[in-house]
Computed example of a mutant assay.
Amino acid sequence: MKASKTVSTRSVTTKLMTTASVGALLFGLSAAAQADNWRYAHEEYEGDVQDVFAMAFKEYVEDNSDHTVQVYRFGELGESDDIMEQTQAGILQFVNQSPGFTGALIPEAQIFFVPYLLPTDEETVIEFFNSSTAIHETFPELYAEQGLELLKMYPEGEMVVTLDEPITTPEELRGKNIRTMTNPLLSETYRAFGASPTPLPWGEVYGGLQTNILQGQENPIFWIESGGLYEVSPHLIFTGHGWFTTAMMANQDFYNSLSEDDQQLVRDATEAAYEHILEHISGLADESLEKIQAASDEVTVTRLTEEQIQAFRDRAPQVEERFVELTGERGAALLEQFKQDLEAVQND
């Protein structure tokens, strides 16, 4: 049982390690750059989706060049906001971060948290990421404004809500503190759903659920299993409201300083990692759910019917309106492009 002994102490470990780890990075920055050692940080644990992507990227780079890639997992250099700051400062060359956190930096990235915008069937989601104009043309420009070279956006898994009791209606969420990532639109989503959104960094989630400060949270099922969240929040609700999305990017000054060959190497390694992750996530949710159910007899699984989902979907327009309020004309244009891209995929 990994969570009660390890996850609940990870936030403490994170805080103890961060200062020393970043100091070591700064101390070795010049020498490491000359040695072509590239640093890559992500938000998840060993064996999770972002880690699998990072290790596939590392393997391709090291198999096809003299460069090395050093991968840092969650907690080794701090929380999500820490690794983004380190990437923008040039301490890290690569970072993998969800729009759930990047949304504070790039408000338009919060579009992935408009509920019921993305479909939940895997094949359609993947086709959207492969072909979307918004993904391949609009977002790179938005990330570039923040000194980031967007290399790939990719899906990790359908979002699942965990709670202290099973629910089937928005009314049953009333009064429940639901942990959200620290972006305004996700808070608006759960406010629309009837809950009380509580933005928190990941390191505080397990303890908050364990002490009932929080009554629920959302994550893809593999992360619920990996982080042991089912131990303290055992009722899984499949609401069909979206997929967890993440983005892999580079410090733009670093990327622009690379030779053409090395830029191509980075792009090729990113594509190889992307193809690998699409295979990896296929069936991952079912495998993770089986592990959860084998580990705990307290777990319940509620899959909302179409009629039940509609009650939640009816509340989505107010989140779209809030997205446009937060992002202005650019956000409105992006939302329209998203819908066109999705319609093209669904009508293909």
Rank of each mutant, 00 (worst) to 15 (best):
residue 338 F to E: 03
residue 89 A to I: 05
residue 34 Q to K: 15
residue 217 Q to N: 08
residue 340 Q to W: 08
residue 171 E to C: 11
residue 234 P to T: 11
residue 1 M to P: 13
residue 74 F to T: 11
residue 227 G to D: 04
residue 71 V to N: 01
residue 255 Y to D: 09
residue 160 V to N: 02
residue 125 V to K: 02
residue 323 F to D: 03
residue 111 I to C: 00
residue 229 L to H: 07
residue 325 E to K: 10
residue 164 D to F: 02
residue 76 E to I: 06
residue 72 Y to W: 13
residue 224 I to R: 02
residue 10 R to Q: 10
residue 51 D to V: 00
residue 212 N to W: 07
residue 122 E to K: 09
residue 86 Q to N: 10
residue 273 A to K: 03
residue 239 T to P: 02
residue 75 G to F: 05
residue 295 A to H: 06
residue 4 S to P: 12
residue 228 G to I: 05
residue 308 Q to H: 04
residue 236 L to D: 08
residue 143 Y to D: 05
residue 216 G to C: 03
residue 155 P to L: 12
residue 203 G to D: 09
residue 203 G to S: 09
residue 293 Q to P: 03
residue 206 Y to L: 00
residue 13 T to I: 11
residue 283 G to R: 11
residue 71 V to D: 03
residue 307 E to W: 02
residue 220 P to D: 15
residue 187 S to V: 01
residue 265 L to M: 12
residue 327 T to E: 01
residue 93 Q to D: 15
residue 188 E to R: 14
residue 249 M to A: 07
residue 275 E to P: 06
residue 296 S to V: 08
residue 123 E to Y: 08
residue 306 E to Q: 13
residue 235 H to V: 05
residue 157 G to H: 05
residue 284 L to D: 08
residue 144 A to Q: 12
residue 345 V to G: 06
residue 42 H to Y: 11
residue 131 S to C: 07
residue 15 K to V: 13
residue 240 G to H: 04
residue 7 V to H: 05
residue 127 E to Y: 03
residue 181 M to I: 14
residue 13 T to F: 11
residue 110 Q to E: 15
residue 113 F to D: 14
residue 178 I to C: 03
residue 173 L to Q: 06
residue 242 G to K: 04
residue 58 K to R: 15
residue 84 M to R: 10
residue 221 I to K: 04
residue 266 V to N: 00
residue 25 L to N: 01
residue 122 E to L: 13
residue 291 K to W: 01
residue 9 T to R: 14
residue 130 N to C: 01
residue 302 T to P: 05
residue 302 T to H: 05
residue 127 E to P: 04
residue 248 M to N: 11
residue 52 V to G: 06
residue 129 F to M: 09
residue 189 T to E: 15
residue 230 Y to K: 04
residue 174 R to P: 00
residue 347 N to W: 05
residue 97 Q to Y: 09
residue 275 E to W: 06
residue 189 T to F: 09
residue 74 F to W: 13
residue 285 A to C: 03
residue 144 A to M: 10
residue 298 E to A: 13
residue 149 E to A: 11
residue 95 V to C: 13
residue 214 L to P: 04
residue 99 P to W: 06
residue 246 T to E: 11
residue 100 G to Y: 04
residue 191 R to Q: 15
residue 312 F to K: 02
residue 225 E to R: 07
residue 128 F to T: 00
residue 332 A to V: 08
residue 328 G to F: 11
residue 223 W to C: 12
residue 278 L to D: 00
residue 240 G to A: 03
residue 12 V to L: 13
residue 167 I to Q: 00
residue 1 M to V: 13
residue 211 T to I: 09
residue 300 T to Q: 12
residue 193 F to I: 01
residue 35 A to V: 06
residue 246 T to D: 15
residue 216 G to W: 02
residue 335 L to G: 03
residue 29 L to I: 13
residue 342 L to W: 10
residue 134 A to L: 07
residue 333 A to K: 14
residue 343 E to F: 09
residue 279 E to W: 09
residue 135 I to S: 03
